[in-house]
Nucleic acid binder design. Structure first.
Lengths: 83, 83
DNA sequence: GAGAATTTGTACGTATGTATG
DNA sequence: ACATACATACGTACAAATTCT
């Protein structure tokens, strides 16, 4: 069984870590794993899951927000936008 | 009083500055002054200590990394490899 | 309503990576 | 080899908003 799709972070490659994470999360949104209107995993959770610094996670989230895929609300969380 | 051992940088000689620095650092590693598993002085620190440009320091560090003596981690520092 | 816990926002400092002149 | 600038990344601390107990 081959893990295809580059679902994991490549810490040695050229692509920035935050871009890789953004790509992963984008995939989980478009695939429906993260459903519209529902809350995404918190930054702290993602930090633990992927072993990245919070700033790096936030940069990935920021890019998703800029794309209009998610909205971030202080004190509440980050939510997948309805499409 | 003569400084023997080439512990200082010779800015006029034929040997590249980065090679001289690499040699110095290599010595401090093998002698145990820079202990295995611990962090090396930062590039900025070495820049100040030896009066070299950062690019030159990086070239020296790169050579040490190629030799397997140290590993460099973005955002954390350069560490002496355990042997 | 009070206080604790959670979550995102902001700021700073430090360090390595890359690019240009 | 030097100088500069910016990007990427880690770590820490605290603030602000919301939710939970």
């Amino acid at each position: 069984m081959i893990k295809s799709g580059g679902v994991t972070i490549d810490y040695l490659g050229k692509t920035p870590l935050w871009q890789q994470l953004a790509e992963i999360l984008r995939g989980k949104i478009t695939s429906g794993e993260y459903q519209a209107g529902r809350r995404m995993p918190s930054e702290t959770t993602l930090v633990q899951e992927y072993g990245l610094a919070r700033g790096t996670v936030r940069q990935a989230m920021k890019s998703l927000e800029d794309e209009g895929l998610v909205v971030r609300v202080q004190g509440r969380g980050t939510f997948v936008v309805e499409r």
